[in-house]
Design a protein around this nucleic acid. Structure first.
Lengths: 217, 217
DNA sequence: CGTTAATCGGACCATGTGGTCACCTTAGGT
DNA sequence: ACCTAAGGTGACCACATGGTCCGATTAACG
């Protein structure tokens, strides 16, 4: 049974350290992925290792806090775009925002791509994001900007796919993802094409998705 | 200085164990990714841990041996497809074969996606694969099956992207990748579209590509 | 057979990790 | 100024992993 994470503290030094920790961890996870050690994060933040565990009950907990923040932010962007005049453009903007987060944050890619790293809350956040994406997509579909057999689930899945397509070029061409975003957009644009095979599930299989391939280790 | 890997042995038991080891490692890497421990692989193969290091000087070496095998096989398929009558179909077949390998093998995805895991030989093999893909693509382009601004590099990169798009569905819909392969194909098919932004490098940046984000740990 | 060199295997080592804890420091109310 | 509880910390623990090594085993040849 994992101890639960303490609430946001009140003492000034604690508040400050929590902030430092969150910032350091964000950068560390973004740059090096989920594998960075707690020790390094503590060092980056300029605090002792023990302090990390005073603020977050486990490494997974710290990671979840940060991932939740990013997911919520993206959901906010998506929700705002629901009000846009041009549904096609809104969908494109959402996808651009999404891919950009993936590109910027290595841990984000890893967490989204491996359910065993997702806390319940993270799963719920991804699910909510999927719902908004669905509405965004359906608007674009109704307007005729997107082919009829493409769903919001497709769109969300494509985010990760696009980033991984461009990943090997990250160092030499940090903006190459735009090229592949365009390619994907050309793929989902309406036109006379054979319908896609293998219809995707209505929603991401996120609630209890995986006989995780790591469990038996 | 790493000790170099011994040549294929001659004694019957050694040959057998080497085979057993290669098989076990293939399956282990495919299913669990590069993180499986040598100990587990040895157990799966039914040999002692020491035996692993007698046959392969390091874990990286064992991994490289297996990855090389897969890359060579894919290159063979691609080369054979160069002779096909229908260039467009050949390209599609190549992509299908490629994505299928990615889908089947977790370690393959990881190695291709993280240059720090690639040995010199693996990098060369990937490079050779890129060359064949380039020729495959250029044939399809000349025939008008593929838009003029798509290169072989794009095609290779898309392989990984497609697999990652479908990854979250692997358990529920193991064949979902076909849907996203089709989507990608629709994206690279000729048609009147604005040219893609951010032209890709002529070749994959594989020779010495990355200030690897793990090196400073 | 008997010899011998190749092979096997598991105890062993160095290293790195997440997480704990008992002790010291300090913020902040009085 | 003082008291106290919240907060900070780094030595410490348990555990896992890649890799080494040397005594025991065995294939293969004469």
């Amino acid at each position: 049974m994992t101890r639960t994470t303490p609430p946001v503290p009140s003492r000034s030094d604690a508040v400050r350290n929590r902030r430092l920790l969150l910032d350091a961890a964000s950068r560390a996870f973004a740059e090096h992925g989920v594998e960075v050690s707690i020790g390094e994060i503590a060092q980056w933040a300029g605090v002792g290792k023990g302090t990390v565990f005073r603020h977050f009950s486990s490494k997974a907990d710290l990671l979840a806090a940060i991932m939740l923040g990013m997911l919520d932010e993206l959901e906010g962007t998506a929700t705002a775009l629901l009000e846009a005049d041009d549904p096609g453009g809104a969908l494109r903007d959402f996808m651009a925002a999404g891919v950009e987060i993936f590109v910027r944050d290595r841990a984000f890619c890893e967490v989204v791509g491996r359910p065993s790293l997702q806390s319940e809350q993270v799963r719920e956040a991804i699910h909510r994001l999927g719902d908004v994406a669905e509405r965004l997509t359906s608007r674009a579909r109704d307007q005729g900007a997107v082919r009829p057999d493409v769903t919001g689930t497709d769109v969300v899945l494509l985010l990760s796919g696009i980033q991984h397509t461009a990943a090997p070029l990250l160092v030499t061409e940090p903006l190459a993802w735009r090229r592949y975003l365009e390619l994907a957009l050309d793929g989902i644009t309406a036109g006379d094409r054979r319908p896609l095979p293998y219809p995707p599930p209505r929603r991401l299989p996120l609630t209890s998705p995986d006989p995780d391939p790591d469990r038996d280790r």
